[in-house]
Design a protein around this nucleic acid. Structure first.
Lengths: 195, 195, 195, 195
DNA sequence: CGATAAACGAGACGGTACGTCTGGTCTTGTG
DNA sequence: CACAAGACCAGACGTACCGTCTCGTTTATCG
């Protein structure tokens, strides 16, 4: 009996997002964000948070997924290569803002704790990975992508530069650069003569 | 006048490395490593550490560089493409062990603090980046790499998968996979017909 | 409709006594004993406890009276002074064990809350007090105790040393010391010449 | 090096006394008084309190002794019996007010923890006990008190009624009742014929 | 004998406080 | 005057209970 209070649940997720929102004055990083602060902000007791989330990172993954409404869809009505370009472009766009900072900090948290890494991979990376692998397989079927490489390798090769930019913050992320990375990856960077 | 005690300096760096060494029982992550603990281990007062390092991350970067003796050399006596393959391979090898974990955690720290990010990029990334850019330019001169792309873009494209694996820990890093990523990057993943 | 569950009632009293029983390993004091713990131990919900007892102390008084079977009788078949000696002796004996610790802790609880004090006095002290006052009045009638002092004053004078020992735990309580206190109180501690 | 801050020390003692002072609105009992609250009131961190006091009770004993300036002196310039009457009277007077409530609550705390009991006896009861035993021995020398009873027994007999009233709060404490208890104790409550 | 209202177990909830820990600053000698 | 030693304020940690509050689920009369 006694069932979870949906009201508290929502208040917690919203307070968390609010505190992490960099558009706020004095925005917090995931590291500086404390359960204590979330509880106070949400008008909820710490117990309630600890009851439902095992760690701060688990809560933040939930918050992220909860707010990740503007997804990066994988279109099925256009050629796979075009869908890939569209998908990478929208990902770059999304990651260029506060959601990007959040993902970067989530990845950072994963470096400190194996359980967080696990949860992150299962709930965030795997679903996306599956969608992308399917897309690449479709491209192979359509004959636009080499089928002598594992789709996973191809996925990593194409996605890695976006995460590299996200985490190293050397140059900005946008649709254009995502597109250029894709083109370079498709064509290869060797001169023709080198083959 | 009294000048910086070299003895304390070394003791601090060594204590830091020792505490982070995963071969120790109860190895610490960068996050769990505390200044307090380092001070105790080094037989030094906290004041002394705070006097010379602005943040925990700055100290850890120093520690890392201090210990990063077995570097990944960029050979000049062989074709640039071979040197590139060698370099990426040795990087993958090094990053597959505890030094990899440390770099990953340093990158994580950077997500929380702009100053740390700055210091990391200037002291760690830039020197490596310069070496690699030169190498790519040499490859262009040698006619093995396309010269219609910026060297920085190419560098990102080739290095990103290694860091992706380092940070996502999906599959292991080794010389072989590094080599395969390089080959795929060079050849391109599109079918010839797609061009 | 629906009437108090005698089963729950008993389970609560027994769980309480069990948790307070110092013969148990990890015996609890009244202070450390929590309603939560009693509920779990009794297999009862907290609500049920709160429904029937206004405070922890009220429950403990009930528990105490429930278990206080081996009472200290006031005999009527012997001279009042002998009955008094017998009564004080058996009280000392009982208070020297775990029941004494419990009474001491009940008295402690009373120092923090006027309602507890009230309940304690009404249910524990008053009945005993009445019996003792009657006994002292009988002694007066029998001509063995001065009748120029209020019986209440005499009662306090004779009982106080037992409670003093119970609460200060300086020296142990037993029949012998109770008897010596009574004798001293009866005879007075002044030399005859001082009168 | 690094030495205790006398300023913090005083602030803590004063905050504690202030919070326990029943002349304040919303006075606290020892039980309800929290370290957290004291720290806030004193403008001090909890760490500082925990550094110097092992338990709440230890702090409160310190606070009590610190404030117990208006002591109950044992006069030496008058007959021992008069000094005894004076001493018991002033004790009763003091215990009738807020200091009495504090002592009562300290005694209550002792019922829950052996270490507190120890500290209380050593720092509070023993010094007083010594003074009183000397006084009783003086009375014996002066020939006003029987010397066939141990001074400790006599001390308990005379002091117990005051503590009994303090803890049971049946009737008020004052100089007069203290004096009457003393007289009754000296004379004995038995009729002369009973001897 | 079936309706109904209470008592019940379960346990979530907002709170308070616990005692511990670390961060970063400040103070006090020592060499 | 750099240093060790370590006290200090600040505040988060995760836990234990508090007393209140739904929730269904017995259960025992009463209409």
């Amino acid at each position: 009996m006694a069932v979870r209070s949906e009201q508290s649940h929502r208040a917690i997720l919203e307070a968390t997002m609010m505190l992490l929102d960099e558009r706020q004055p004095e925005a917090l990083t995931v590291q500086r964000l404390s359960i204590e602060r979330i509880a106070k902000e949400a008008g909820v007791s710490k117990t309630t948070i600890y009851r439902w989330w095992q760690s701060k990172a688990a809560l933040i993954i939930d918050t992220f997924l909860d707010n990740h409404v503007a997804r990066t869809p994988v279109r099925e009505d256009i050629p796979a290569l075009d869908a890939l370009r569209e998908h990478l472009g929208s990902l770059a766009e999304i990651y260029s803002g506060r959601e990007g900072r959040l993902v970067a900090q989530l990845i950072a948290e994963c470096q400190y704790d194996a359980l967080t890494m696990n949860e992150f991979k299962e709930r965030f990376w795997l679903p996306r990975s599956h969608a992308v692998n399917s897309l690449i397989e479709r491209a192979m079927d359509e004959g636009t992508v080499r089928s002598d490489l594992a789709p996973e390798i191809i996925a990593e090769l194409l996605y890695a530069p976006l995460y590299f930019r996200l985490l190293f913050q050397i140059d900005p992320l946008d649709r254009d650069i995502a597109s250029r990375f894709l083109t370079a990856g498709l064509e290869g960077i060797a001169t023709r003569a080198a083959h």
